[in-house]
């Protein structure tokens, strides 16, 4: 029993990790909480559903994921063009990024609600063999596949951040964008690339979440909350912290739902976040942006 719970928790945590990283990556560059991420996830979930449903024979999973990644990328770039760009140009205080992202989040959720109604859709079944046994625990194929995909994406992401020139640029800009510019890094394009990356992550998360849960406008929002909690516990802006925290969060959530029920669980998760905020605001990783005098 326990092994199954833990496995489910890790699988859930892996998806949260994708969301948390998408959130953390924008925070580390621009120092604001990008709520629009939830909206992007919701939108991509719908795109994934309609893409799959429009073919007589359900396309393979990897195709859907590629499609939604591209969709997520485009949505992110659109949001950047109509919203974030003007904040950058005018050098407005950070709060305007925040307000813009909240507006986008509401806008997307409302558009989805108005056009697709409040009914939820369900993805067609993906796998023939619904589950298999490992060491006495019943592992759902879906969860297993989600876990694999998430881990793969995260590894690729970490490699990009740590090993490529672009990743280096991102890290530099996240520490100090002015010095970055002096060093020849075009912070404008790094920012756009970061948004694009977040968009791709949102797209992938959207597909995976849609498969695991059902498709409704608020999906992105409620999942984002988990991502935010993970990101906060992990240390806002730290990617590795977000991943570790997300995995832990998934496991804790599973255990809590099983032992204490699903209505109390959100309160517990939120409570853990509050605990961290007050006792260790810099989170697990210890990253914490501070005011310079």
């Amino acid at each position: 029993m326990n092994l199954q719970l833990i496995f489910n928790g890790i699988s859930l945590g892996a998806v949260y990790a994708l969301i948390a990283v998408g959130f953390a990556i924008v925070f580390s560059i621009l120092k604001f909480s990008n709520f629009a991420h939830g909206g992007m996830i919701s939108a991509c979930t719908y795109i994934a559903y309609f893409f799959q449903a429009s073919f007589a024979k359900t396309p393979p999973l990897w195709v859907t994921i590629v499609v939604t990644s591209i969709a997520g990328l485009f949505i992110a770039l659109i949001l950047d063009t109509i919203g974030y760009r003007s904040v950058r140009r005018k050098n407005s205080p950070n709060i305007y990024y925040f307000v813009t992202s909240i507006t986008f989040a509401i806008l997307i959720e409302q558009i989805l609600t108005v056009f697709f109604g409040k009914t939820s859709y369900g993805f067609p079944a993906m796998f023939e063999k619904k589950s298999f046994e490992v060491l006495g625990a019943n592992i759902s194929t879906l969860d297993f596949v989600i876990l694999l995909i998430s881990i793969a994406i995260l590894i690729v992401l970490m490699l990009v951040i740590e090993k490529t020139k672009l990743g280096l640029a991102i890290r530099a800009v996240s520490i100090d964008s002015k010095t970055g510019r002096l060093m020849g890094i075009n912070s404008g394009s790094v920012i756009i690339f970061t948004f694009a990356l977040a968009g791709i992550l949102a797209g992938i998360s959207g597909t995976l979440l849609g498969m695991k849960y059902s498709v409704y406008p608020g999906l992105g929002g409620s999942m984002l909350v988990k991502g935010v909690i993970a990101s906060t516990i992990g240390g806002l802006g730290s990617m590795s912290g977000a991943i570790i925290a997300a995995l832990l969060l998934g496991v804790i959530e599973m255990l809590s739902v099983y032992n204490l029920g699903s209505s109390v669980t959100p309160v517990i998760l939120f409570g853990i976040m509050l605990l961290f905020l007050f006792i260790r605001p810099q989170g697990i990783s210890g990253k914490y942006a501070q005011d310079k005098v």
């Binding site: 919203g83 003007s86 305007y96």
Partner: peptide
Amino acid sequence: GQSMQEYRTILYCILIILVLNFRT
């Protein structure tokens, strides 16, 4: 086919985005 009322929130969001862009 739906009354503008349903679009209320969407309208607000669009107005805000316009304001943020053109008259921050």
